[in-house]
Design a protein around this nucleic acid. Structure first.
Lengths: 109, 109
DNA sequence: TTTAATACCTTGTATAACGATGTATTATTT
DNA sequence: AAATAATACATCGTTATACAAGGTATTAAA
């Protein structure tokens, strides 16, 4: 019953929540993109595709909510490690506050 | 600080939440579009513009989550009253469940 | 030797909020 | 009487973003 609708709804919901997920995850520990996908999946069951995470990280960088550094590996491809900035922490706090407000709005209906 | 970012974030968040807001509001009582805007504003402080609500109602109609009927007024423009369908109620239940799951995912991070 | 996993990335498509704009009716204000 | 605002419907162009698909490169496993 309306599985397409619900699937699409989930996708739309992510458009708001993913930046919060990423900032929150990076508040706990530095991660590189590929790792973030696995981290969010294993820690919270959140599925993000590569086509989503890399552009998202670039956006958050442009907003200066994240910093990054390349880290060479003894073998294999270098990793781009992201960490949250002061600005990012402030934003995360605001976002959580806003989400809580939104949640209370739902309860009012 | 990063007000543009936060404003845009709120907008993106709405993309998932508005269908739920509308279905929930219509579960309580039949409304016409223009009334829904005022209803959501006064009941829960949710701002929706006309350019958002009318296409949204049309989408929910196409999914058969809503029914509507024109109601002539003693004076003025006829109103298009929307009510939630059985299918809509089921969807709303699923959406709330899904949102609760999502909320618990956030807490896990 | 081929497949899979790791690790980065871009492009095209679909979806949806929003401001602007349009139409029409009625009420209020000047 | 005329102009403005409020009611009530709607569409269109812009912008943002998730995702599938595809691309590049390295290393490990089958």
């Amino acid at each position: 019953m309306k599985e397409d609708f619900l699937k699409n709804w989930d996708t739309q919901l992510k458009k708001g929540l993913l930046p919060l997920f990423v900032l929150q995850a990076l508040r706990n520990k530095e991660c590189y993109g590929y790792e973030l996908i696995q981290e969010l999946k294993s820690a919270a069951g959140i599925d993000i595709s590569e086509g989503t995470i890399y552009p998202l990280l670039i956006r958050l960088m442009k907003e200066e909510l994240l910093h990054y550094k390349w880290v060479e590996q003894p073998s294999g491809i270098p990793r781009k490690y992201y960490s949250i900035s002061q600005e990012g922490k402030k934003c995360l706090t605001e976002m959580k506050k806003s989400l809580e407000t939104t949640h209370s709005k739902i309860r009012k209906l």
